[in-house]
């Protein structure tokens, strides 16, 4: 392996002293700025938008969920739920406002974090009539982005009884809905099993209105 290999980097110019020049830097710099801003930044972004819109229009527009022709949410954005007839999402440091997405950024050793988790544990246990030790961790911790649309299947299961009672539905029916809305590991390999809270609650409303023939969006 000889060092002469380095010379194959490009063909050696016939007259190297003329081939090297450091002139024209300012023109190059201004030219490169124009190329970057318009050619790369703007045109590339527009190409990405065009391809996305053409191939995956629903996903490209925010995975919005419509009911009766009205946008009621996005399956990628958690909504707050307070009513006992609904499954609750994870707590949010951003108040579930997508314009303010954020985590709590509290350290594991921060006493405020411990106090908040303890209170959330007690609250969730009382609300769902279960022992605090049965509460799943994701239900009492704030997510990274503050709009995590999912909870773990355990966090859904421990709310099932309360939701069923509040709605006057059978527990088995609610559990079947949870099962239907549980997404397993993607491709059987990736991530964690999860339940989309907004989709589950919309399905609950649909099931209730079908059964009781009452308006879905009451309260």
């Amino acid at each position: 392996m000889s060092i002469q290999n380095a010379n194959t980097i490009t063909p050696t110019p016939a007259s190297p002293s003329q081939a090297i020049s450091d002139k024209g830097l300012l023109r190059g710099a201004i030219g490169l700025a124009i190329i970057s801003l318009v050619g790369f930044g703007l045109l590339y972004s527009l190409a990405g938008v065009g391809l996305g819109q053409a191939l995956f229009p629903s996903a490209a527009n925010g995975s919005l969920i419509e009911r009766n022709g009205k946008v009621v949410g996005s399956s990628l954005v958690a909504q707050p739920f307070a009513d006992a007839r609904y499954f609750q999402p994870r707590p949010s440091a951003a108040g579930h406002d997508p314009m303010a997405v954020a985590g709590s950024n509290q350290a594991r050793t921060n006493p405020d974090l411990r106090k908040r988790i303890d209170e959330a544990l007690m609250g969730a246990a009382q609300r769902n009539g279960v022992d605090p030790s049965a509460i799943a961790g994701d239900l009492v911790t704030q997510s990274g982005g503050g709009i995590d649309p999912h909870i773990s299947p355990q966090a859904a299961a421990l709310q099932a009884d309360r939701v069923a009672r509040a709605r006057g539905l059978g527990r088995a029916g609610v559990e079947a809905l949870i099962a239907r809305h549980t997404q397993n590991k993607q491709l059987g390999l990736l991530g964690q099993p999860r339940v989309n809270v907004l989709e589950l609650n919309l399905a609950l409303d649909a099931a209730t209105s079908a059964e009781v023939n009452a308006p879905a969006n009451g309260g």
């Binding site: 594991r108 544990l121 961790g137 997510s143 990274g144 999912h150 999860r194």
Partner: peptide, 13 residues
């Protein structure tokens, strides 16, 4: 720790 999921997303873990 019960705080494991603080700042994390359920779909990833």
């Amino acid at each position: 720790d019960i705080a494991l999921m603080e700042g994390k997303e359920v779909r990833f873990g």
